[in-house]
């Protein structure tokens, strides 16, 4: 892990989305992530590539796994990690966002990881700081490290990222995970299908290169990967589906619908899961099919790789 002397090989200072990355960038991040997967399985997990660097986690939305994952990633790389959680009620005003950005910037951090309920808010913040910014999810826009960890999981399990048939199922409309995954997986040469009722499919999404299905069995046919999404009730204004009961009946992943996919199809879920809403417990807990906990493990490695890459260049003063 002696990477201090190596420059950031990404063409950009920030990681705001998959949009902007090249296939080579993705492969480079995933390759570096693999080395952290190995390191994390040692008893001695610490590296010092970010020693002396300051990492700020700025979360305007509640998060358990993503925040913990970034925090642990920073600490294992030797960075000083500061956690700032802003109660969602206090951030209604965007002035606060730019003011917060400029205030934090004055403390010379090296990397800021931001999650925000509004699409575009992380870019707005990035425009007002001198350090690297990682988007940990902005509204329904992007969540690039999630897509990268999903890609790493798929690559480990299937040995490649091209030529696969991948179904992303559920609440596509409100999902930043779906958008980042569509961009990444189509870019790497896989075929992406979206399975959801029409009310949960964003308009013109097929222009991003995905095929839309409203019948889950049809959509899952011959799929190598099934990516389930959480029904995001907190982002919903009004009725999109009549009830969770009806939703599960037609769009929840259970043993029966799973038979449409390839026998060795892998099941992913970004978490947190709503058991009995979008996924049946027996399917979620079947370790021969479900990669849900592997995703969590690899997520940490992916975030270490991203922090390592973006933390290499000293902050511009």
């Amino acid at each position: 892990m002696q990477s201090q002397s190596r420059p950031n090989t990404l063409a950009q200072r920030d990681l705001l989305g998959i949009d902007g990355l090249s296939p080579d960038d993705v492969s480079a991040i995933l390759d570096l992530s693999e080395s952290y997967v190995a390191l994390n399985r040692n008893a001695q997990k610490k590296s010092d590539v970010l020693r002396g660097r300051t990492l700020i986690l700025l979360f305007f939305e509640t998060s358990t796994r993503t925040r913990t994952s970034f925090e642990l990633a920073g600490k294992r790389l030797g960075a000083d990690v500061i956690n700032i959680s802003v109660a969602s009620s206090a951030i209604k005003k965007g002035e606060t966002l730019i003011d917060t950005a400029m205030t934090l910037n004055a403390m010379h951090p090296d990397v800021i990881v931001v999650r925000h309920p509004d699409a575009g808010a992380v870019r707005l913040l990035a425009n007002h700081v001198n350090c690297a910014v990682i988007n940990a999810g902005d509204g329904s826009h992007e969540h690039p490290t999630q897509a990268l960890l999903d890609a790493l999981t798929i690559r480990q399990k299937k040995g490649r990222l091209d030529g696969l048939r991948i179904a992303i199922c559920g609440d596509i409309l409100h999902s930043r995970v779906a958008r980042s995954n569509i961009l990444l997986l189509t870019m790497m040469g896989s075929q992406v299908r979206l399975v959801a009722p029409p009310t949960l499919v964003p308009p013109a999404i097929e222009r991003l290169g995905a095929e839309v299905f409203h019948d889950m069995r049809e959509g899952l046919e011959d799929c190598d990967i099934i990516m389930m999404l959480r029904l995001q009730a907190e982002r919903m204004q009004g009725t999109f589906v009549p009830s969770t009961r009806e939703y599960f009946r037609y769009f929840g992943l259970d043993e029966d619908k799973l038979t449409s996919a390839k026998p060795d199809a892998l099941i992913l879920h970004p978490g947190p899961m709503n058991r009995g809403v979008e996924i049946d417990s027996t399917v979620a807990d079947d370790i021969t099919r479900s990669a849900i906990l592997i995703q969590v493990e690899l997520g940490l490695a992916v975030r270490q790789a991203c922090l390592d890459l973006l933390g290499r260049e000293p902050a511009i003063s």
Binding site: G120, G139, S140, P202, P203
Partner: peptide, 10 residues
């Protein structure tokens, strides 16, 4: 509404 809004997540 359209492709741009969908890409931007708006």
């Amino acid at each position: 509404e359209g492709e741009v809004a969908t890409r931007l997540g708006l």
